[in-house]
Nucleic acid binder design. Structure first.
Length: 339
DNA sequence: TCTGGGGTCCTAGGACCC
DNA sequence: TCTGGGGTCCTAGGACCC
């Protein structure tokens, strides 16, 4: 099963601001729609105006001037999320968390629909949040089923109804196929899920590679892994990035901002209790061109000075001095010790 | 319309080695 | 003087997801 909270971030905000119930609510950036930033989540009322995740806040304000705009409050969503995940862990032997608002559950039951209703009831009783539940023969089917259950519903996809439900949908409806791949597929004359499912594997392999080509066909046929991991999440990297309200034109300022961000990343590395092995710096230039450079560290470390120096060394690899709109620093961790 | 922040995985190409 | 074939590792970019 796949569980996904409905309009999660907006729902958390409405819970603590009950007067917003039924109103268009848009959460994003620092809540100021005149600034650089995008929508994290819009309530269903705001979505009716064409406001959705990823939309620039300025555009959202134009489409829905009467919406309530709120700043992102990460700790609040993390707290709500962990309440939900605690409930899920009480209900299933294996829960694989996929983000703040979704998880896969490995479940053994004769009646998955009624089990799904129990999940919804238990989550609502504990958190007053609504969720949708997808049921499938594998992760892919369950994940896609959830979307057909929204809001607050349950839907089951199987190998029996897969093409009936999804056959005529665009290929981009599939999990793992985004706009770029969908466009390349269209160049091959493939538009729908059914079309991709019956496509020539050799032709896809030639276009997308020997691994990805055949994989695309399997996804279109609803074939995928059934594994749900109960192992705790172990991050491979920690990063911070900042988009500046005004582009940086002075490279000395760029350097000092990178040091500042590297300091924050050091805090995250220390909290992880594992040393970093590599530091990567990301620069987004005006108008919107992004590039990254990294350096390996001489030895694994959690020391602030070393991480800052690593970030500066990575920054030295950039030769372009165009105005900078975003800076980011990422620390990468090594393999877990074999134990 | 101007485009966040935090992640993961895959791939192409270069360096290097036998 | 022009130069094979096979392998591994690293880096940067691309694509995707929440």
């Amino acid at each position: 099963m796949h569980v996904d909270l409905d309009q999660f971030i907006a729902a958390v905000e409405v819970l603590r601001h009950p007067e917003l119930h039924g109103r268009p609510v848009v959460v994003g950036g620092d809540g100021d729609p005149a600034k650089r930033g995008v929508v994290s989540t819009a309530s269903y009322e705001a979505r009716a105006y064409g406001v959705h995740s990823g939309l620039p806040m300025r555009t959202a304000a134009r489409r829905c001037p009467d919406a309530v705009f709120l700043a992102v409050d990460k700790p609040a969503y993390e707290a709500a999320s962990s309440e939900v995940m605690t409930v899920l862990h009480e209900l299933a032997p294996a829960v694989e968390v996929m983000g703040w608002d979704e998880a896969f559950l490995a479940v053994e039951t004769d009646d998955p629909e009624s089990f799904a209703r129990q999940v919804q009831d238990r989550v609502a009783a504990a958190t007053r949040l609504e969720c949708s539940v997808g049921i499938g023969e594998n992760r892919l089917q369950a994940k896609l089923a959830t979307g057909f259950g929204k809001p607050a519903g349950v839907f089951r996809l199987t190998s029996q109804n897969w093409f009936e439900v999804l056959g005529d949908q665009p290929a981009s409806a599939l999990w793992g196929i985004g706009a770029k791949t969908a466009h390349k597929l269209e160049e091959l004359g493939i538009r729908t899920v059914a079309g991709l499912a019956s496509a020539d594997v050799a032709a896809l392999a030639a276009r997308f590679g020997p691994t990805n080509g055949p994989w695309l066909v399997l996804v279109a046929r609803g074939i995928g892994s059934t594994e749900v991991s109960a192992d705790p999440y172990v991050p491979k990297s920690r990063s911070r990035e900042v988009t500046f309200q005004q582009d940086l034109t002075d490279w000395d300022e760029v350097r000092s901002e990178v040091v500042k961000i590297a300091g924050q990343v050091t805090g995250d590395v220390l909290a992880e209790r594992r040393p970093a092995i590599r530091i990567v710096v990301k620069v987004r230039y005006k108008p919107f061109f992004t590039s990254t450079h990294g350096v390996p560290l001489a030895e694994p470390t959690s020391e602030r000075a070393v991480i800052e120096q690593g970030a500066l060394a990575a920054l030295e690899k950039f030769t372009d001095r165009r105005p900078v709109r975003l800076l980011g620093v990422r620390a990468e961790f090594g393999e877990e010790d074999a134990r």
